[in-house]
């Protein structure tokens, strides 16, 4: 079996691993790096539970080979809170009950966090459309959308305060 050596930055730390070429990024994260917060909910790239950031963009880590992420900067749900302080999106999900079973949550949070970088003031419609790539079976999305709206507000206020 041929293996490849891949090196990447995950949550700010440089990591390397020897993997089969057919290894997916999500497998590298979960199996090699034991970052099990990133979940696998489907095999057709639709549920979005595996969403992580690769070079600052949300992607489905079940649909990218570990080899393709060689040299990339990857952030997972485990790397979103800084110094023990929840990210505004995490905090808003907690505050607004944007999660129930928690399985889709890491992907939902990572996807939402990416949205708010790209669109700091999204409309309800823009939030719902952006989250097309993340399926939740528990919440009916109501509180997820509310949480993203509130996180957006918090982040805008933080940004204004910093100016």
């Amino acid at each position: 079996m041929t293996t490849l050596s891949v090196s990447l930055t995950v949550n700010g730390k440089k990591v390397s691993a020897d993997v089969e070429p057919r290894t997916l990024l999500v497998q590298l994260l979960r199996e090699n790096l034991h970052l099990t917060g990133t979940h696998v909910g489907c095999d057709t790239s639709q549920c979005g539970a595996c969403t992580v950031h690769v070079n600052g963009d949300s992607v489905k880590s079940c649909t990218i080979l570990a080899a393709q992420a060689d040299g990339a900067d990857v952030r997972t749900i485990e790397g979103l809170a800084q110094a023990g302080v929840l990210h505004a999106v995490q905090e808003a999900f907690r505050e607004h009950h944007g999660l129930q079973c928690g399985f889709c949550t890491p992907g939902m949070v990572m996807s939402s966090a990416d949205l708010l970088v790209k669109n700091p003031n999204p409309s309800e419609h823009e939030i719902r459309t952006w989250l097309e790539g993340n399926i939740c079976r528990c919440t009916g999305y109501h509180n997820i959308v509310k949480a993203v709206q509130h996180a957006a507000q918090t982040l805008r206020q933080t940004a204004q305060a910093a100016e």
Partner: peptide, 9 residues
């Protein structure tokens, strides 16, 4: 096309 994550790849 697809969804946000798909459009990023």
């Amino acid at each position: 096309i697809g969804d946000a994550q798909v459009r990023h790849r």
